[in-house]
Computed example of a mutant assay.
Amino acid sequence: MQDWLDTWVTAGKADVITCEHSVNEIFVRPAWRHCVKKTVVDIHSSLYGTCQNQLQTGTAEKPWRDRLSLPLLKRYERRYTAKFTDLVVTTPEDQQQFQGQPGQQTLHVIPNGVDLTAFPYRSMDPGGHRLVFVGAMDYIANIDTAKFLAQDILPALRQRYQDAEVLLVGARPTDEVKALGALPGVTVTGAVPSVVEYLHRATVCVVPMRIGYGIKNKTLEAMAAGVPVVASERGLEGLAVDSPQRALRANTATDYVTAISRLFDDEVLRQELAKQARSMIEADYTWEQVGRHYEQVLSS
């Protein structure tokens, strides 16, 4: 890969270099910043910020390792971002992580998007008391979320609604996620042919994430599909959902039970949240719109 890129850039064939995620920054040589028009990195989210967040919330897999790694990650991000002319992040919160980096980079906030063809607005509200959470079930943030939802939120909710259930939808569930399927009302699906079908069957989509920076595709996709959302600050990061109201916020198990109960009991509220959220997605979060913003960064 490096030989191919070196040959390409040396031959003068590159006007702009765009790097997807910091994991690929290793292929971008510092000198290229001075021999092409622009070098752009689409960061997704801060490694330092994510590690710090996991330590603060007690969710780090290996806390001693991460405490030792934290200052190294800070230094690493300062070093690699200096190779680029432009930095792209998905939310204002992540933008703050990269303020004041060395060099003359321009910081841009460009969110992720949704394919509205793949996530059509559902034709009817199914009612009932079914929750859904979607995500790759081998990712630490989703594993923590699945456990919090199944072990802390759902049991309290089932005291009010005995038939309440949650679908944990996503590929590669770890053993600890699979074990959640033994709990009353919990179904672990593994990989499914169509995520949107599970979204359409749910009364409410819950995104009770406690860790993980960046905008959440799972939240955008549920909103596009017409499913009312209850989510944490992390699950709603970067989204304006309060005026008009497009989702309900919650951060503790008690908050979630209260918010979910409101939606279980109020079909009109479910429909209003779903309608407002879909309008926001159509206006600001399609891949076509996101692509135009990214193209402006590359061409300006």
Rank of each mutant, 00 (worst) to 15 (best):
M1L: 08
D6E: 13
D6H: 11
V9C: 13
V9D: 06
A14P: 10
V16W: 08
I17G: 04
T18R: 14
F27M: 14
R29S: 07
R29A: 07
C35T: 11
K37T: 07
K38V: 00
S45D: 15
S46A: 05
Y48D: 12
G49K: 02
Q52K: 15
Q54V: 13
L55P: 11
A60C: 09
E61D: 12
P63I: 09
R65M: 10
R67M: 14
L68A: 15
L70Y: 06
L73T: 13
R78Y: 10
A82W: 12
F84Y: 12
T85V: 12
T85R: 08
D86K: 12
D86N: 15
D86M: 13
L87N: 14
V89Q: 07
D94K: 03
Q105K: 12
T106H: 15
N112R: 01
V114Y: 05
D115N: 15
T117Y: 02
Y121M: 09
M124P: 00
G127I: 06
L131V: 13
D138Q: 14
I140K: 13
T145H: 15
A146G: 10
K147H: 11
Q151M: 13
L157D: 03
Y161Q: 06
G170I: 01
E176R: 11
L183H: 06
P184F: 08
G185W: 04
V196F: 00
E197G: 03
T203A: 11
V204T: 02
V204C: 09
I211C: 01
Y213F: 12
G214S: 09
I215D: 02
N217Y: 04
N217H: 01
T219I: 02
T219C: 05
L220W: 01
L220R: 00
E221G: 01
M223Q: 15
P228K: 10
A231Y: 10
S232M: 03
L236E: 09
G238L: 02
V241M: 12
T254Y: 04
A259H: 03
A259N: 01
R262F: 05
V268D: 04
V268T: 14
E272W: 04
A277M: 04
E282T: 14
Y285N: 00
L298F: 09
S299F: 10
S300D: 13
